[in-house]
């Protein structure tokens, strides 16, 4: 029996919460419950980020996903008043296709990760690695072009959704 650190215990607890709530998210019948379980999953994943010394990422994850995107999800589901009685029945072949696509994705992921070499996690032990300072330096020095490109992608998506939301285009 090797020495178990508090980090390992926390990792196990967080993983258990994440996996359980993710499973409940899929299996629960009511869409509102699904969204609430998804929020719990996000919090567990934010805990994982903190364990990896990525404090900034953890808080931003909570602000963006749990605080903004899931509120919008909940908003839409409440407004459309979706529940199990009014849920549209999906045909069998669509369900089958979804299972096949998901399975193919899983196989791909497992294949990729199996072949990948063991990553060197030495850097992750540095407590300051996830601070805003370091993140900003890395983003604006090493990854400036991908960073700016992804922001343009967001802008395009925003313009597109405004266009779709407009009733008449004059």
């Amino acid at each position: 029996m090797t020495h178990i650190t508090i980090t390992q215990i926390m990792f196990c607890v967080l993983s258990l919460i994440a996996i359980t709530s993710a499973a409940l998210l899929i299996f629960s019948k009511s869409p509102i419950h699904s969204v609430l379980y998804l929020i719990v999953t996000f919090f567990a994943i934010a805990g994982h980020y903190i364990l990896l010394n990525a404090q900034f990422l953890a808080v931003v994850h909570v602000i963006v996903y749990a605080g903004a995107i899931m509120v919008l999800f909940l908003f839409v589901i409440m407004m459309l008043n979706l529940n199990k009685e009014t849920e549209t029945h999906k045909p069998m072949w669509i369900q089958l296709m979804a299972v096949l696509a998901g399975g193919a994705m899983l196989v791909t992921l497992v294949g990729v990760l199996k072949g990948a070499e063991q990553m060197n996690l030495k850097q992750a032990n540095d407590v300051n690695i996830g601070l805003v300072n370091n993140l900003g330096l890395v983003l604006f020095n090493d990854f400036l072009v991908p960073f700016e490109l992804s922001s343009i992608l967001f802008l395009a998506a925003m313009v597109g959704s405004v266009m779709l939301g407009k009733k008449t285009i004059s």
Partner: peptide
């Protein structure tokens, strides 16, 4: 060291109680 973001994060999940 991310106190301002922490504040903002808690405020952003504050709406769930009401919803």
């Amino acid at each position: 060291n991310i106190g301002v973001l922490y504040l903002f994060g808690v405020v952003s999940i504050g709406v769930y109680g009401i919803m």
